[in-house]
């Protein structure tokens, strides 16, 4: 039963991932990417990684992909031009893909050995719910890495703000305090009829 569900979700994830690359319409590509994330979350859920699965849905599907969709809907991307470049860059892309695949395969192989050693421990964590356990590990053993990731994100935020900041005077903005302080007596004059 569980295996059948895994096969279904894995197939959905793979097909959706393929459709992301193959679809001609960028909006449709983003929607297939969302479907791919969903199927991945479902497979994680079956591995008892409920915290990770729900975080994937919450962060990627619920926020990041909405922004993707937002941008793609506003832009009028011509896929024909993008496709023309595809053949030129395809050798590099292919090499990158093989490198990433080799990395993933390596990690999976190592992980299987690790899983054999700590299998009992892992299944015990899965039983009690892994959100609390994950927090414990992140905030003790990996605190430095966690803080570094936080600083990295902060730098990214500041960089984004710097990129879009166009100086204080080049924009016409409404001053909210001025609007709130507006007094109808100074704005409206009653003109008598005669």
């Amino acid at each position: 039963m569980e295996y059948a569900f895994f096969l279904i979700f894995a197939a959905v994830a793979l097909i959706a991932a393929a459709m992301v690359i193959l679809s001609r319409n960028p909006v449709r590509a983003v929607l297939f990417l969302i479907l791919c994330f969903f199927a991945t979350a479902a497979t994680w859920l079956m591995l008892n990684a409920e915290f990770l699965a729900i975080t994937l849905v919450l962060v990627y599907v619920g926020a990041v992909m909405v922004l993707f969709l937002f941008v793609v809907m506003m832009l009028d991307i011509d896929f024909a031009i993008l496709r023309a470049k595809l053949t030129r860059w395809s050798p590099i892309g292919l090499a990158l893909a093989i490198a990433v695949f080799a990395l993933i395969a390596e990690i999976i192989e190592k992980d299987q050995i690790a899983f054999g050693q700590h299998g009992d421990e892992l299944s015990k964590i899965a039983e009690t719910g892994n959100a609390a356990k994950l927090g414990e590990i992140v905030f003790t053993n990996y605190l430095l890495q966690f803080e570094l990731a936080g600083i990295l994100l902060l730098v990214a935020i500041i960089a984004a703000i710097v990129l879009i900041y166009r100086g204080p005077r080049s924009r016409k903005l409404q001053s909210i305090p001025k609007q709130i302080a507006a007094d109808p007596k100074t704005r409206v004059h009653l003109v008598s009829g005669d």
């Binding site: 915290f51 729900i54 619920g62 719910g129």
Partner: peptide
Amino acid sequence: VGLLYVLA
């Protein structure tokens, strides 16, 4: 993780 699920 009910609360997270609802948010998601």
